[in-house]
Design a protein around this nucleic acid. Sequence first.
RNA 1: CGGGAAGUAGCGCAGUUGGUAGCGCACCUGCUUUGGGAGCAGGAGGUCGGGGGUUCGAGUCCCCCUUUCCCGACCA
Length: 573
Amino acid sequence: MLPTRMSTMFLRTLRDDPADAEVPSHRLLVRAGYVRRVAPGIYTLLPLGVKIVERVATIIREEMNAIGSQEVLFPALLPAAPYQQTGRWDEYGDLLMRLKDRRGNDYLLAPTHEEMFTLLVKGEYASYRDYPVMLYQVQTKYRDEARPRSGIMRGREFVMKDSYSFDLDDAGQQHSYDLHRQAYIKTFERLGIDYRIVAAISGAMGGSQSEEFLAPTPVGEDTFVTCSNCDYAANVEAVEVRVEQPDPDATHPPMRNLHTPDSPGIGALVETLNRDHGMDTDASKLLKNILFKVDAKPVMVLVPGDREIDEERLASAVAPGEVTAFDEADFAARPDFVKGYVSALGMQEAGVIVLADPRVAPNSNWVTGANEYEHHVVDAVVGRDFVVDRYVSVATIADGDPCPRCGSPMHLDRAVEVGHIFQLGRKYADAFGLDALGADGKPIRITMGSYGIGVTRAVAVIAEQTHDELGLRWPASVAPFQVHIVAAGKADHIAAALQLADELEAAGVSVLVDDRTTAQAGVKFKDAELLGMPTIVVVGRGLVEGKVELRNRLTGERNDVLLTEIVALLGSS
RNA sequence: CGGGAAGUAGCGCAGUUGGUAGCGCACCUGCUUUGGGAGCAGGAGGUCGGGGGUUCGAGUCCCCCUUUCCCGACCA
């Protein structure tokens, strides 16, 4: 290969931060000339951007191929029919990029390709002898996000590696899942991404076991918990709740009704109880009762008073029911619900379904509303005084909550999801009737797994996790070039730099050489730091002694090295 | 979809009581400089987001539209 010259490379670096970029990776990728915005969430890759995306994709491909997955490539533009068949044409809603062809037929720009992979395998394979099989692609995906942000970290168009496994039985599926899990571990190690594997919910994809590969960063959009003691880690959406089960035989005093004027909220109620009734209580011992409508029917949700209800978790708990708020008009229509003083007491008789957080355990006692204006009850016992119809984990998770495994405090952190592996089960095989003919002549329903890595997102994540105040700092495994040679000054420096560049390329080292005559040394140093290649070689005033300066972009370390030794030094590394 | 902010040169920004648009970076020419985002001089580059209105005159005032950014909701 020939070295790439800065004098002719299509690149313009910016001295000022772009006004629309907030997170560091976005600012730097724009300033350093890797990407340019075209429309919200839609970016052009410039030559450096193309290179780094390719290098990341290559590592992913190598690890996919290593577990025997085979690469295919579907169109991004697809007919609507397969997605209508699985219901996702409607389920995806506004997130789906839809379009029509000249005849008015519906098409979409694919957000993910489960349907197509299932249909492809169904079309080609019919015998149990053909299985198992794993296929993947590196493809551009489209999702019309309500609010794209953070540059290529969360675009409306993005590159994703998605793979799918097809197995005859659950044991095979588990094996395929484990293969991908190992491949992902190797992949993220090689990419130099700091990641955690956490328990996840499978969301709109359906399926059972599901884990996410999260890259911790303050700009992350996901929140996850890690245990301070054991290795439990989970997305907050998927945290199991540890509950100290009360003694089922314990007896409680009879329920009492107290006058609690002007105490509609949890905070006000704690104050009133402690002041007027000589109690020493806190919000965690009070019950927060919130009414919702699920498909227009009233549902009451109970959580401890120090918790909020995570409406997203509630929505997934009652899916496919539609959750809406119980508003003023609803209260007006139900005078038996005393706003501010509602409780689960007698709700079943009122036609209300009562859902509760697991902390509202059987035989636990609580302070709750009395369904009577300005009155609350104390020692309301679950199972004795009121009934929970169903337990759902819908309370928000807080920093310091106990680990479900060992009970130690858990920490909350922010992260970006860079990979997701999960077992789809037979959802798509059922939708399309994907069967293999078994040895006994009977059809076997295929079970599937789905595994994704955000390729362009991984680039942003690496930038986010590795940059410093001077610019990008790519790990050698993904850097667009291994070595950035800066010709600091005169014509003889440039000549020597170009010759060194040729020698390094001949030794198999990719080189970017700054041979510009139009830029001063200071500009070249700044650009080299901004662009972020792992090794910078300065050909400058040391040249008269046959020396060049070797700089490590990651550590900042600098050494003078004989020009004659450079190739051996860098070629071997 | 709710709340906030903003659209003026490729990028970052200024523009007073309304008087016909400017600064920095980048770009072009020349000279000087030459290892930490150089200096001087001279240039090129703008339907001021769009439409309508008020006015002798609108980047500036009024109305409508539109786009973008940020926070939230949403989001394999």
